[in-house]
Nucleic acid binder design. Structure first.
Lengths: 349, 349
DNA sequence: ATTTATTTTGCAACCGATTGTGTAAAGAAA
DNA sequence: TTTCTTTACACAATCGGTTGCAAAATAAAT
């Protein structure tokens, strides 16, 4: 009930007849403090129930131990797993995570990047909004040497950390898989071509077709927002074509499942009449009937990796604070993907 | 490139030949500052690109504009939607959200509650870990009049805000629905009975059975951790019984889907041989074949409601800071649920 | 013109940890 | 014992808004 004030290093100092500076240094094992003093201080601090005031430390150092995260939407399987991975690594290292969602809006992304900056986050992990074209709102992080990691949906040209998959190769693999199953007229349901994730997969798709001497039919390429309903609509359009596809490569599982449902409703046999491959390996992929062939997307791992990039950067900065070229880091990390073959595409028994 | 220091209210004060206090007050429309001055100050602040230092304000006021969130796991459909709702409301009100996950561990929950406290969150929203029995680690929030909202998985006795559904009624409705479909031997797959969400649903289940003069068979009640695999294992056990059930009420969709898959593999007809009802209305529920009958669980709404509780509390405290009994708030908000009938239970055509 | 009332603004302490610089004490070397 | 190093700690400024109280400026009343 009583408004017991928090104990501060001043309280400890008074109690022990030492200076606050000594307390402060002792608590973080500063080399100029003797081991004996360090031990004693820590003991007393413990006894008094001391908890450091993060805000005071942050104000002084002009930085917090908070990693900012800026994603499109939290409640998507890929994103929530990504965040889970980030949080896990951060927590273990004594860092916190502040999460914001752009709802795939460029304007929100700009505002939120400012808000995170104002919050003095020590680093930021971002997956771009669907319609972001300009990324100059992130420049201030670079200028201040605040580590910035773009994950999955990354900009083309930005000297910073990037954690991603090889989307071109994945698109190529997915398409080639369908070709190997005997598909000759393969459609492609994709997202905004401003995003590397989708444009690169499309490039892989096109190259796989060309390599197999299949024609690239623009009619078979549909750009959507990738919701379940979008998947339904896009596949309906495709199936209504005078010359419908016998295979579809969809860039996410959500829309792919929409396509499967439409195909089933229409009495199309999967994979005989139309083979379908998705992307992400969301939980539904292995549960839907027929099982959805898809490309694995290591969401948790990507989150962990991104967080580690931030932490490592901070560590290296602490070691040599006078690094003149740190602001010119361009480090791209690729994580592996693979084709997970399930019934929706498996024509060869 | 140049390490341009942030502009502070001191810079503005110097520029305008005013005191920092005037700037500070003007920027937040303090009544003692003239409108003329306010307008001028805001204009200059804007021009100079002033951004307030959150840490400094927080240090002084000993509180931030951050809402702490403590949940079991982020990457679960219900939780990620919950968080999405929280973040949405918070963002609109100019607040940030700090997210932590206990991984359903009591020890982690205790540590994280401390960490959030240390971060000077202005409020905290928590859904308890699976095995939490004692909740005294949350008392310090009450003592400091920091609003605390328990959501979904709430403690029995804790004078604070609670946002939840009527689990008893939901369990009763679910079971009654199966009874109405003609089931007479209804099994129940549930979670830890320390959690109100599961114990209350079970109570509803039992009462519905008794009301229909059906016997409550302890053999038919299985307590698990509610993963997909747990659903498979629990249903296998049930189907192997000499006298297997003709209906199953599972307290979450993930495990319910596991049960469906097992039933299908065994050649059991759903819902004829066994009717199944889940809980949550996860995306898979409407996608799996047969469609899973389930209980709607308004995740986003619960998140929004929880966040609003925090914000309202803060607002009312600001209005009358000398509220002696605010620490004795017990306000329970129930959100509605309904039975969503799909093929997995619909025996009456 | 003087007093009273009211509006507007300034002063300065404060929040609590951090850290460069200075100094006293302890130990080593002469 | 004296001098020179280390070692160990203290002082005090600093980070940037916030706010109680005092003072100044202006307006209103006498």
């Amino acid at each position: 009930m009583e408004e017991s004030r928090d104990v501060t290093i001043y309280d400890i100092a008074k109690q022990m007849n030492l200076a606050t500076s000594t307390i402060s240094r002792a608590l973080k094992d500063h080399p100029t403090i003797s081991d004996k003093t360090i031990k004693k201080v820590k003991k007393v601090a413990e006894e008094m129930g001391f908890r450091p005031n993060i805000l005071a430390a942050g104000l002084r150092g002009n930085s917090t131990k908070i990693i900012g995260v800026l994603v499109s939407r939290i409640n998507r399987p890929f994103i929530s797993s990504l965040i889970s991975g980030i949080e896990e690594v951060a927590q273990k290292a004594g860092y916190s995570v502040m999460i914001t969602q752009s709802h795939d809006s460029y304007e929100d992304e700009v505002d939120l990047s400012k808000a995170l900056y104002d919050s003095r986050v020590c680093g930021i992990i971002c997956s771009l909004a669907m319609d972001t074209r300009d990324t100059s709102h992130f420049q201030k992080f670079i200028d201040k040497n605040i580590p910035l990691v773009f994950v999955d949906r990354v900009p083309k040209d930005f000297n910073t950390y990037r954690v991603m998959i090889d989307n071109y190769s994945a698109g190529y693999k997915a398409t080639k898989h369908l070709i190997e199953q005997g598909c000759t007229r393969i459609a492609h349901i994709t997202g905004s071509q401003y995003r590397n994730t989708y444009s690169e997969r499309k490039r892989g798709y096109v190259d796989a077709l060309l390599e197999a001497n299949l024609t690239v039919d623009e009619q078979l390429i549909v750009e959507t927002s990738l919701s379940y309903e979008d998947g339904e609509a896009a596949s309906t359009t495709l199936f209504d074509l005078p010359n419908p596809p016998d295979g579809i490569f969809v860039v996410n599982d959500t829309a792919a499942v929409g396509a499967i449902q439409v195909a089933k409703k229409r009495g199309l046999k999967i994979p005989e009449d139309v083979a379908i491959i998705g992307f992400n390996d969301d939980p539904i992929a292995s549960i839907i009937d027929p099982g959805l062939t898809t490309i694995s997307h290591p969401a948790v791992k990507m989150g962990q990796t991104s967080a580690k990039k931030i932490l490592n950067h901070l560590k290296s900065v602490k070691k040599s604070p006078d690094n003149p070229k740190k602001d010119n880091i361009t480090e791209v990390t690729f994580l592996n993907t693979e084709v997970l073959v399930r019934a929706s595409s498996n024509r060869i028994k």
